[in-house]
Simulated assay, not measured.
Amino acid sequence: MTTKERIGVVVSNKMQKTVVVAVENRAPSRKYGKTVVTTKRYKVHDENNDCNEGDRVRIRETRPLSKQKRWEVASIIESASGQKAPEPISSETEQS
């Protein structure tokens, strides 16, 4: 049996050894034929807590690890570390 793999983006890493990965699927609608984007979120095992929000990762199906975890991080394709966090706007600049 082949192992399923998906590519998605980490949307949450607030749990210990677990990340939430959103995987997009683009398919034409059955009735109208317009391309529809559906997003599915997977709970994924991250043993070393390496993943951060915004990282693009490859996930692999595995045996059940908990009630909702059936996937593990196979590799990090692209890191989001190059992005800058937005700076908060101070009240002084709003008054000017």
Rank of each mutant, 00 (worst) to 15 (best):
M1H: 15
T2E: 09
T3G: 07
T3M: 07
K4S: 07
K4R: 09
E5W: 08
E5F: 05
E5R: 11
E5Y: 12
I7P: 03
I7N: 06
I7C: 03
G8D: 04
G8M: 03
G8V: 02
V9R: 02
V9G: 08
V9D: 08
V10R: 01
V10M: 00
V10F: 00
K14L: 13
K14C: 05
M15G: 03
M15T: 05
M15L: 05
M15V: 04
Q16R: 14
Q16M: 13
Q16T: 14
K17S: 09
K17F: 05
K17D: 04
K17E: 09
T18V: 15
T18K: 10
V19F: 00
V19Q: 00
V19I: 07
V19S: 00
V20S: 05
V20N: 08
V21C: 03
V21H: 03
A22T: 07
A22E: 13
V23W: 02
N25E: 08
R26T: 15
R26H: 11
P28C: 03
P28M: 08
P28A: 06
S29N: 12
S29R: 09
K31R: 15
K31C: 11
Y32N: 09
G33W: 00
T35R: 06
V36L: 06
V37E: 11
T38P: 00
T38V: 06
T39G: 01
Y42E: 04
K43C: 11
K43V: 10
V44R: 01
H45T: 06
H45A: 03
E47I: 09
E47P: 00
N48F: 04
N49C: 04
D50T: 02
D50A: 10
D50S: 11
D50Y: 04
D50L: 08
C51W: 01
N52T: 10
E53M: 06
E53H: 06
E53S: 07
G54V: 01
G54K: 00
G54M: 04
R56K: 13
V57F: 00
R58E: 10
I59H: 10
R60F: 12
E61H: 07
T62F: 05
R63D: 13
R63I: 07
R63T: 12
P64T: 02
L65G: 02
S66E: 08
S66I: 04
Q68E: 13
Q68F: 12
K69Q: 12
R70L: 12
R70T: 15
W71T: 02
E72M: 02
V73T: 01
S75V: 06
I76S: 00
I77M: 10
I77H: 06
E78S: 12
S79K: 02
S79F: 02
S79I: 01
S79Y: 02
S81A: 08
G82V: 04
G82L: 03
Q83I: 12
Q83E: 10
K84L: 12
K84N: 11
A85R: 08
P86A: 05
P86N: 02
E87L: 13
E87A: 11
P88W: 05
I89L: 06
S90D: 13
S91M: 14
S91Y: 14
E92K: 12
T93R: 14
E94L: 10
E94D: 13
Q95T: 11
